[in-house]
């Protein structure tokens, strides 16, 4: 995974193993370099992803190599973030959902069940319409109706 400097292209190339760094991790790391570099990705055989970081201005070899090394660090950062995010997915949904709901306007909050009541609700009641499919809420009403009749 050593960075390979391509001076002619003013770029550094890194190839990463998607078995270690899953695609979302590689993408997230690449995203962090968009302001400083032109970034292009390409899949390689054997679950590998090639990443090219090209300088927006001419860069010398040390700077290019440094970019590649920084990219490695960012991969580790994003990998941990990804793992923690997956592990705490449900917890985040509960805390953030509760906090955002509490900030809603006074009238909306009054209409929503109180936290204590919410614990007693049958999940089938779905007062906030969470179970309503996205298409039914926001999509073409005719299509939804037709599908509903089938």
């Amino acid at each position: 995974m050593d960075p390979k400097v391509d001076r002619q292209a003013n770029a550094v190339n890194v190839v990463l193993d998607e078995g270690v760094f899953p695609r979302p991790v590689g993408l997230a790391a690449a995203y962090r370099f968009l302001e400083r570099c032109y970034v292009q990705l390409e899949r390689r055989p054997g679950r590998r992803l090639a990443v090219r970081l090209k300088g927006k201005a001419p860069l010398d070899e040390d700077v290019l190599r440094g970019l590649g090394e920084e990219f490695h660090n960012e991969l580790v950062n994003q990998l941990v973030r990804h793992q923690v995010s997956e592990r705490t997915d449900q917890l985040r949904a509960v805390i953030v959902g509760r906090a955002l709901l509490s900030a809603e306007p006074a009238e909306a909050a009054a209409a929503a069940p109180a936290a204590d009541d919410a614990a007693c609700l049958d999940y089938l009641e779905d007062p906030l319409g969470i179970a309503v499919p996205w298409e039914e809420k926001h999509g073409d009403k005719r299509k939804t109706t037709r599908r509903g009749k089938k």
């Binding site: 997230a28 690449a30 995203y31 968009l34 032109y38 970034v39 292009q40 990705l41």
Partner: peptide
């Protein structure tokens, strides 16, 4: 001079 590279960056950002 920069259009294809900028396009590539933009497309990458759209992925996320």
């Amino acid at each position: 001079a920069r259009l294809p590279d900028e396009f590539g960056n933009y497309a990458l950002s759209c992925l996320l």
